[in-house]
């Protein structure tokens, strides 16, 4: 019998959590439950980063995904749905088609994964302290990320302006209530 180390046990524990809650996320009939299960999947992923001693990424995962995106999803569910609502049962045709697609996808991924030759790297681990990440993020030299950082900020600015344009009322609409 193979004995497992403490680290492996923790790893398998969180893997089990992720697998179970991923399945629950897609099979749940209630949309807010699905969102909650998704939250547990994302928290499980954060746990992996903490196991790898990469606390920065773990905290980022919790803030962005758990505290940001899941909150956004839950907010939109709260505004649109009711506690008694259930998903409609899916027709046979759709079920078979989606099962086929997911089986093919899973098969392909497994095939590539199992045939890949994973070579453990000999290079020393990069220093993942907050200071280094911060410097790299705003550095314009080799291995610096200032250009993608600025491009993303431009994209976000465009998204914010777009959201305001969609959400604001046109001034002439208030004068003429019939014009909808």
């Amino acid at each position: 019998m193979m004995s497992i180390t403490f680290h492996q046990a923790v790893f398998y524990f969180f893997s089990a959590i992720i697998v179970i809650f991923s399945i629950l996320t897609v099979t749940s009939k209630r949309i807010l439950r699905a969102a909650t299960f998704l939250l547990f999947v994302l928290l499980g992923t954060a746990a992996f980063y903490f196991i790898l001693n990469y606390a920065f990424m773990g905290a980022l995962q919790i803030t962005l995904y758990a505290g940001g995106i899941v909150v956004l999803i839950i907010f939109s569910i709260l505004l649109t749905s009711h506690v008694g609502e259930r998903f409609e049962p899916i027709g046979w045709g759709k079920m078979i088609a989606s099962a086929l697609v997911s089986l093919i996808g899973a098969g392909f991924t497994l095939y590539v994964l199992l045939n890949a030759d994973f070579i453990p790297t000999q290079a020393p681990l990069p220093d993942a302290s907050v200071k280094n990440i911060g410097t790299a993020l705003l550095s314009y030299e080799r291995n610096g990320f200032v250009l993608p950082f600025e491009v993303v900020s431009l994209l976000l600015l465009a998204a914010i302006v777009g959201a305001i344009v969609i959400a604001r009322k046109e001034p002439h609409d208030t004068e003429n209530p019939n014009n909808e």
Binding site: L32, T36, L39, A55, F56, A59, L60, I62, T63, A66, G67, G68, V70, V71, I74, F75, I77, L78, V83, G84, S129, V130
Partner: peptide
């Protein structure tokens, strides 16, 4: 005592709002 201490606190406290939203919605 992680090296990202303050950031970790911000991350941990951001989970709480989900509990509030879930509590409000699930009470019906």
């Amino acid at each position: 005592d992680p090296d990202i201490g303050l950031f970790f606190i911000m991350a941990a406290t951001s989970i709480g709002v989900i509990g509030i939203l879930l509590a409000g919605w699930s009470s019906n």
